[in-house]
Write a protein that binds this DNA or RNA. Structure first.
Lengths: 242, 242
DNA sequence: CGATTACTTGAGGCCTGTCAATGATGGTGG
DNA sequence: CCACCATCATTGACAGGCCTCAAGTAATCG
């Protein structure tokens, strides 16, 4: 028995805009099921044309793109509440892959219902554009970090972003948030080598600013972290939940 | 007297999906005017909340984000047919600026009409999502290039992308396309220094692969360029025109 | 207990940034 | 018409951040 959208635990978090009960009731009709996956499993593959859309209920994952020579660029990190597969829905194929970095629980929507949503629920369609815009914004920020910041700064920026996003999801306990990724994931996201990424993390740990081990990130000095990031801390805007 | 959407010269190009005459007629009601700007002028500023949306009719521009320390990341290059300002429309403020790199002619839509479009023309709203998805895809590709490729490769990739996009816009004359940007723009897009970017361009010129000067890019050996780019030449998909 | 995966740490070299100087071009004002 | 200035492109020298190679530790697993 799956959770009804009306009772979706995500709705209360600061990260999301409010949703009325009637909206939630409609979304529930749109919803076709739930799915649980192990960490390491590939949800969507580059080049495939997926017929389903997902909203993440629990767990985390990565989006990434692979090059001919085996290099990998991590496009983004997928957290609870994130909407996955919109690209596949409107363009016919995925341009990147998605993999679970921890056990995940996903809410499944059917692609073929998407059109009904546009026709009958323009407000929800509008939210969809909003979500797409937020995603574009996150990508812009990542591009800026990768392009303009040096190693120390970009690692700091990334940890800060994780800390903020996860805090907004109520996952902050005592300045500690879960972070079930590998150092290689972060390195591939920032365009740094694994070795160098490791050294930046070691420096942050030595300086008592932040430490990340065993899948948990502890931030001991947010201001120092923000300082090293060298990037305007653009606040996270509430976004609609799909 | 402005051009009617029915007669929009952009419609015929390979870069865009077909649009029926009746669709074009509706868009014409959505359109509120045209605007011409000089090169160097700022169309939209970071942090501002624009009330208008634009489709580029002629000319080119850049999207960019500026950091506290004056560094600049070029987010993307705006070509004819591109839709500008969607982010400002759904989130309330722009997260990046837009500047004209050549004289531009823009088609103006009113933000307040956007809602009407969602309510009464779901197919066009769907196209809007499609456009947003294409933009996201371009950003992914750029992020991958900046993160994973070295100088020679990323410069080659960028020139190749320009060549393909402009060719799809019927601006290719004898393997030569207009490219009214500065080397600094390209450098800021790729996260390279101006000096190094210049040296990569010099190498491509010396090797007889491509030469860019006086606002014109000539590609003498597309295959060699593609070879140096080291990235899958994902084809440009036709996209809807707004 | 060997094999695998992830994390750490050190050493050396190259790609790329910074500094600096020069040319080329075009606009401006006397 | 020419000196002057601003912008952009070009080229060389040098230093440094980051990559690659390599080796070692720790934890998990069959």
């Amino acid at each position: 028995m799956t959770t009804k959208c009306e009772n979706c635990p995500l709705r209360e978090f600061a990260a999301f805009e409010d949703m009325t009960d009637s909206e939630a009731k409609y979304m529930d009709r749109f919803k076709v099921g739930e799915m649980s996956v192990q960490n390491g499993s590939e949800l969507l593959a580059e080049g495939a044309n997926a017929t389903q859309l997902y909203t993440v209920l629990e767990g985390m994952g990565v989006r990434y793109k692979t090059l001919k020579d085996g290099k990998r660029q991590v496009i983004g990190f997928i957290l609870p509440g994130d909407f996955v597969g919109l690209q596949a829905a409107v363009m016919d194929t995925m341009q990147h892959s998605v993999m679970a970095s921890s056990p995940m629980k996903l809410c499944i929507f059917n692609r073929s219902n998407l059109w009904d949503l546009f026709k009958n629920h323009p407000d929800r369609a509008y939210d969809l554009v909003h979500v797409a815009a937020v995603e574009e914004y996150m990508l812009c920020e990542a591009l800026t970090a990768v392009g303009q910041l040096d190693g120390m700064s970009s690692v700091s920026w990334a940890l800060l972003r994780f800390f903020e996003r996860l805090t907004a999801l109520n996952l902050n306990r005592n300045n500690q948030v879960p972070l079930p990724y590998k150092q290689q994931d972060l390195a591939d996201a920032l365009g740094l080598s694994l070795v160098h990424t490791n050294k930046m993390l070691a420096a942050l740990r030595k300086d008592g600013i932040a430490s990340w081990s065993d899948g948990r990130l502890s931030v001991h000095d947010v201001d120092a972290l923000r300082n090293r990031a060298h990037m305007d801390p653009v606040p996270l805007l509430p976004r609609p939940l799909i």
